[in-house]
Computed example of a mutant assay.
Amino acid sequence: MGSMDGKTVIVTGSSRGIGAETAKLLAAEGAAVVINYRAKAPRANKVVKAIEEAGGSAVAVQADLTEAQGRQALVDAALINFGSLDALVLNASGGMESDRGEDYALKLNRDAQLGMLDAAAAKMPAGSRVVFVTSHQAHFIDTVPTLDAYEPVARSKRAGEVALRECIPALAEEGISLVVVSGDMIEGTITATLLDRVEPGAIAARREEAGKLYSVEEFAVEVAKMVSADVESGHTEIVGGGKGFVDA
């Protein structure tokens, strides 16, 4: 039996990258998983197929998290397809897109996270877990400067984390816990690629300072662990130790 047998999890932004790998790992532990995508259905369906071929259960749902109907669609899909909603992994993020408007980073990384939490928590039973995925560059932005190109996104993600943490007392009354997972730059992600394009050598420099940067697959293992880890609500999991951040 897996640690997630009989549980249903929504993983936002899970048609690729960290979200997709996290969803696969949770499914391998027995969870039924709602795969969320904004525009690329074939990519999301590929993740569902991989989970099903491995003996798991999943469904792909198109949803723009910045819209209330999109967030509700994910909750409805969990309940209709699998009968429950026991965990929420807030993985989706963005803000470096050039075609989404000046306020998009804050709209997605703060407002949509809160909206998704509100929609999900209303249907989650006591004992449920919410996991917010962030970066060291965002989590420590108030004490450690980041790349100029990433600072607006980092500040929006930090704003999202702060807003979510303010919900902890209300969540506790419902028996729901919230955990934050913070990771360094992740090898092979779109964000890392875009940053290296804007500031050539940025990833190599951070790799040298940190000693190691996690791959998508390695970081996803840490995110998936936190869905069922025996930790207190409000816990922050600093993946990789945070050299250059925690000792700043």
Rank of each mutant, 00 (worst) to 15 (best):
A163W: 07
A73D: 07
S84A: 13
L106D: 12
L25V: 05
L164K: 13
V33M: 06
P152T: 03
N36A: 07
E232G: 01
D230Q: 15
N109C: 04
A229N: 03
G127K: 09
I168W: 10
A126Q: 12
A28E: 11
D111C: 01
L74A: 07
V75P: 05
P42R: 05
S84F: 10
R158E: 02
G83P: 02
A210Q: 14
K24D: 06
A50P: 00
E151N: 05
G240E: 09
A28I: 02
T12K: 14
Q69L: 09
M124W: 13
S57I: 00
L90C: 05
V130N: 08
D142S: 15
M1L: 12
E208A: 14
E102F: 03
N81F: 06
D111A: 08
V221R: 15
R43C: 00
G160V: 06
T191S: 10
F82I: 04
A23T: 01
L114E: 08
R155M: 06
Y214M: 11
G17K: 13
P200V: 09
V9Y: 07
G6M: 14
T143C: 00
A20W: 10
S228V: 04
S57P: 00
Y150T: 01
R206P: 00
E237A: 12
K49E: 13
A122Q: 15
A112N: 01
A77Q: 02
A119T: 02
D86Y: 07
M124S: 10
N91H: 12
G244N: 12
S177Q: 15
F82W: 09
G240D: 07
G56C: 08
A39N: 11
A149N: 07
V59F: 03
G56M: 11
A58E: 10
V89K: 04
R207H: 04
S135R: 14
L25A: 09
L79A: 03
A78W: 04
I80D: 13
L213G: 05
Y104L: 01
L65M: 09
E174D: 14
D111R: 05
G94F: 01
K157I: 02
G94T: 02
L194E: 12
S3R: 15
V47P: 00
T134W: 11
D148E: 14
R16H: 13
R100K: 15
G2N: 04
A138H: 05
D103C: 01
A220G: 09
K107Q: 13
I51C: 03
F245Y: 15
F82H: 12
A154M: 06
G160I: 03
G30I: 09
I10G: 05
M1I: 04
I168G: 05
G241A: 07
I141E: 11
Q62G: 07
R129Y: 03
V131L: 08
N91M: 11
V223L: 10
D230P: 05
I190V: 12
S15R: 14
I203D: 11
